[in-house]
């Protein structure tokens, strides 16, 4: 007979995500997840917040949004009621919505196995994930990509790294 343990309840899961997000907002780290993009619109003093985090997986978008709003209310009460858009996305979802157009693409053809492994480990250390198109490492801005590129060059020196930009489809407007 299989062993079935009680799963974590949605409420406690939500609370755990809220606590982790709050700690990131209070004391942001230089790398790792969650990644919080907070855009203030100066003219209206409103905010758009997008949180990219793979731990969102078990929650639908609306529940993620609630977690972000509740956490902001707790950490930044002065922003309560000023957040127009609060969106939580996993990395593949953020890519699919065009939020992470810059990619670091490893050039590993011809590289020997120990080097290949080192390259993949270094990418995962920078936040890469295994998606449908292999190991993907994505960024929102060219600056973020270049900073990561520099760290990867230190971790695995050599002609292994390139930065690519995904171009939007040509609009037929």
């Amino acid at each position: 007979m299989p062993l079935i343990r009680n799963g974590t309840t949605k409420a406690s899961q939500t609370l755990a995500l809220q606590q982790e997000l709050a700690s990131e907002l209070r004391d942001p780290r230089s790398a790792g997840e969650p990644t919080v993009y907070e855009n203030r619109i100066a003219q209206t003093d409103r905010f758009h917040v997008v949180v990219i985090w793979d731990k969102w997986a078990s929650l639908p978008l609306q529940a993620r949004s609630r977690v972000i709003l509740d956490t902001y209310e707790d950490v930044f009460p002065e922003k309560t009621g000023k957040i127009t858009i609060a969106m939580g996305l996993r990395k593949p979802e953020a890519v699919s919505m065009g939020f992470l157009p810059y990619a670091i693409v490893p050039v590993i053809q011809g590289a020997e196995e120990p080097i290949r492994q080192k390259i993949l480990d270094a990418m995962r250390g920078e936040g890469a994930w295994d998606g449908g198109h292999g190991t993907e490492l994505r960024f929102r801005t060219i600056d973020e990509a270049e900073q990561s590129f520099a760290r990867l060059q230190v971790a695995v020196p050599g002609p292994f790294w390139t930065i690519a930009q995904e171009l939007a489809t040509i609009p037929e407007l």
């Binding site: 203030r40 127009t84 065009g98 037929e172």
Partner: peptide, 13 residues
């Protein structure tokens, strides 16, 4: 204040 330019059929954007 959007993070990305909406495409032609980008409903979310």
């Amino acid at each position: 204040g959007l993070l990305a330019e909406p495409g032609q059929h980008d409903i979310a954007g």
